[in-house]
Structure formats: C-alpha cells, structure tokens
Design a protein around this nucleic acid. Structure first.
Length: 427
RNA sequence: GGAGAGGUGCCGGAGUGGUCGAUCGGGGCAGACUCGAAAUCUGUUGUCCCUCUUGCGGGGGACCGUGGGUUCGAAUCCCACCCUCUCCGCCA
C-alpha cells in the first residue's frame, strides 16, 4: 500500500511512476474522493468536538444534581447532524482504502524502465553452460527414463500440474532443501522457522496477495471459522510474523529462512509450461525473508540476492541475474532481481529465484514497524527471495548433470545429504 | 463433539454508564545518589488521523479483540462475528 500522504503531496510523480509499470489507474476518482473526504472529515470532527463538549457539561451538571434540558436538546441536535455525515465519511474512507489496496508499489529509481520481460536488464552471468556431445534431454524425459518421475499417477491422485517423484530422486529433492537450509542458517545468519501453510485473509492482505489476486490462491473454507488460504510462498506467513508488531531497533535486520510447500492455482497460465514440473500447483521452496531498517534495505537486497546465488554456485549450475524492468515487476515490489538458471532441456535461462525489496509497501499493510533512533514507531522495509525454488533446482540438476546413458551425476555439494550417493540411475 | 472462562496500553493487571486515554505494578527513558554498577528515590513514557504552524509546537478527532446497536454520553449495557484459554471426549 502506498502512503496516502505521498499521493496528497505529490500525485503527479506517483502517477508517472505507476504509469512506468504500464498500468492505468483512475486518478480522477482518487482526487474526487480526497476532496470529499477533506470537507466531510473537517465538519464531522468539528461537530464531534461540540457534542463532546456538551456531553461533558451534562455530566458535570448531573454530578451537581442540576437538570439541564436545554443542553440535552443541543446535544441531540448535534447527534442528528452527525448521524448521516459520519456514515458518509466512513464510506468515503472505505473507498479510499480499497483504491489504495489495489495500487501497485512504486518502482525504485534504479529500476530499468520497460514494458515486459524483454526489457529486463542482465546484471551478470556466472558459469558456462555445459557443452554436450550428445543431444541433452529435458527433465521430464530424464525423470521418466530413471523411472522416478510420474505425472500420470499424480494426475490420477490429484489433477494436472502435480508431480509424483520417487526413490533416489525424491531423496535428492529432500537433500536440496536440507542443503539450502543448512547453508542459509549456518553461514548466512538466517533463523530457520517452521510456519503455518494455511493463513488467514489478514496475512494475505499484508503481503499484497489480497484483495487483488484471490484467483491465484487456493482457499480453504471452514464450517465454523474464518476462511483460510494455502500459502503461495512462505513469504506470506514469514513476513506476517511482524504484522502489528513494533520491533526494537537493535533487532534489525530480522533474517528468516523457511522451507515450505507453495500452492498456486496458476489460473492465468492455461497452456503455459504444461510439460514437466516447471509450473506446478504445488512445489517446495526455501525462502529468505528480511525485516530491515529503511536505510539498509537496498544494501540488504544485494546481500540477499548473493545468498541465493551462493546455492547455485555450490551446485555449479550456470545462471544469470537480471533486474526486472518496471513493466515486469510484481505488484508489491519496488525492485526485483530474478535469478535464472541454465536449463539445457529448454536451451535457455529460466527463473529459479526472485529477490525483491518491498520497501514499506507490505509493512504499511501489515502495520509492521520498528522503534527508530528517536524512539518513534516507523514502518520497516521487507525483503524476500527464493533461495531457491526446490522443484526447479531439481530440474536444473537433472538437466545439467545428465549423462548420455540417461543417468545423472549427483553434484558434490549434495552428496553429504544423500548418504554419499554419486549417481542416479535406473534401478 | 460437550461444558466453562476470557480478550484493556511494551508486559502483568484494575476498572460495570459521565474530566477514563484509562488506577496500580513491572519494563523503557531522563535525573538524583555512586568512582562506576546494583539497590533506592524523583520525574517521564501510547498509537493513528485531521488541521494550523510547517523547526520545535498548538488545536481537534478516533482508538480498551472486530463490526453494529442503545444513550446527550460506553472500556463499562445489548447483538453478531473473530480469537484465546481450561476441563471432558476423540485423535497424529
């Protein structure tokens, strides 16, 4: 959510920065609502002040045992006057709130301008894509060849966009999560957390998933309680740890790492990535979340991104980092780096991590604050990034480490997590 | 599933219609004492919004789980919802 003060003070620059995302907003509606709000709020508060004063006088008179019919009459007049205008004010404020809830974040000054993914700017490439002296397969063929990846059965059990993996490949999937968790908690200073995978609407609103993106989520209705939602990423529960909290200055930055399954309806992705396990309704991810002092957040974004990169380096997977352009960034982000891993099966780079600084956008929705140097509550900045998407990392390992006979070498960094197994082969 | 209790400020915990934004204790901050610290004593300490000044600051409004209602006036009364806890049952 944007700071309404900023819209009041400098609407023109907000408009320009939102426009750079390629989004159109009915700003006239905002201006009109603001004007009404201002008028009504002033008059309502004046009337409330008068009414409070009179009620207080009545109380004092009663204490002395005096009867005051003329004061009662005056109070009733104010009451009648307030009845309608208070309600109108509430309606206008509710509409302003809704308006603000669906406006995306402002891109940071360093975000490249652009309309779509083509305009993203590559920051660096690390590692050379391997040259194959045979035609490399994609992960779906490799997985099927190993007899360890079965989409038909997954569809029978659930539906399309689910996977069933088994045996050593399932073990490698587990090993990847363990490996990532160990690196981040032992070497990068993150506190490991285990969190609820179902969250309430307030948490979804906090991170920006609601109200605008309800269609992307799986909802879980309950008979006698509030509806819950399956998390699309651990970002939601982990960021909401600090919702409605005031964190002590010296505790910043808070750094959390969390492994969780993620559930996405992929409502807008019909026909996209239908082969293999690139895009699933359910996938595992290790997520980094930082709760930061505003002055530090951009420095921390670089660090957080490097933490995600470290996993790829240790797995010796070639990748590149791109800065998303204004038109390609997500709703809540002020700046985003995507990390794209080389996938021989697709002969291209494919997103495996997304690291963002949300500045105060989520913090304002969550009312997540810290006590600043002056002792005053101030909104924190939130950051997060995948480090990494486990399913896609598994794919990347399969495709990059495949051998001509269809077997797959286990990356050295993973072997300690797999009981020393060095190779996946058809059993 | 059955029965009951409760949601108040950073924390604990009072408060059942009228200077209650809220007694008190703890914590935090400042000061006194001390070489320093502890202990003790004194003072101080909420958030959000509107508005004027736009540096400090002044005026006003709202907030005692959430949303409605009753009333001139509600933390206090009524209704609905959300949540927490205890006991019994069931259960990984």
């Amino acid at each position: 959510m944007l700071d309404i003060q900023l819209l009041r003070k400098d609407l023109a620059s907000v408009q320009a920065r939102i426009a750079s995302r390629g989004i159109t907003v009915n700003w006239d509606e905002f201006t009109a609502l603001e004007q009404q709000r201002k008028e009504i709020q002033t008059s309502v508060q004046d009337a409330q002040a008068a009414q409070n004063r009179i009620s207080k006088e009545i109380g004092q008179a009663k204490a002395k045992g005096t009867h005051t019919p003329e004061l009662m009459a005056a109070a009733e007049r104010y009451k009648a006057q307030l009845a309608g205008s208070e309600q109108r004010l509430a309606e206008i404020q509710a509409r302003l709130e809704v308006f603000l809830l669906v406006i995306p974040n402002l891109p940071h000054a360093t975000v490249p301008l652009g309309a779509a993914a083509d305009d993203n700017v590559e920051q660096r490439r690390v590692g050379e894509p391997r040259r194959f002296d045979f035609a490399p397969k994609d992960h779906a063929d490799l997985g099927a060849g190993l007899g360890m990846m079965d989409f038909e059965t997954a569809t029978k059990i659930a539906s399309a966009r689910f996977a069933l993996i088994s045996g050593p490949l399932a073990r490698m999937h587990r090993a990847l999560s363990q490996f990532m968790l160990e690196v981040h908690s032992n070497e990068h200073g993150y506190t490991e957390v285990y969190v609820p995978y179902l969250v309430n609407a307030a948490s979804m609103r906090g991170t920006g998933n609601l109200p605008k993106f309800e269609d992307d989520l799986f909802g879980v209705p309950r008979r006698d309680a509030e509806k819950l939602y399956l998390i699309p990423t651990a970002e939601v529960p982990v960021s909401n740890i600090v919702r409605d909290d005031i964190v002590a200055l010296e505790k910043l930055p808070l750094k959390f790492v969390c492994h969780s399954p993620c559930f996405r309806s992929e409502a807008g992705a019909y026909g996209k990535d239908t082969r293999g396990m690139i895009r699933q309704h359910q996938f595992d991810k290790v997520e980094l979340v930082q709760i930061a002092h505003p002055q530090q957040s951009y420095e921390l974004l670089e660090q957080l991104t490097s933490h995600a990169e470290e996993i790829l380096k240790r797995l010796d997977l070639p990748y590149r980092v791109v800065a998303l352009c204004s038109g390609d960034m997500g709703f809540s982000a002020a700046k985003t780096y995507d990390i794209e891993v080389w996938l021989p099966g697709q002969n291209g780079y494919r997103e495996i991590s997304s690291c963002s600084n949300f500045e105060a956008f989520q913090a304002r929705r969550m009312q997540a604050r810290f006590r600043n140097e002056k002792g005053k509550p101030e909104l924190v900045h939130t950051l997060n990034g995948s480090a990494l998407a486990v399913g896609r990392t598994l794919i990347a390992v399969l495709e990059n480490y495949q051998q001509e006979d269809g077997s797959v070498t286990v990356p050295a960094a993973l072997r300690p997590y797999m009981g020393g197994v060095e190779r996946l082969a058809r059993g």
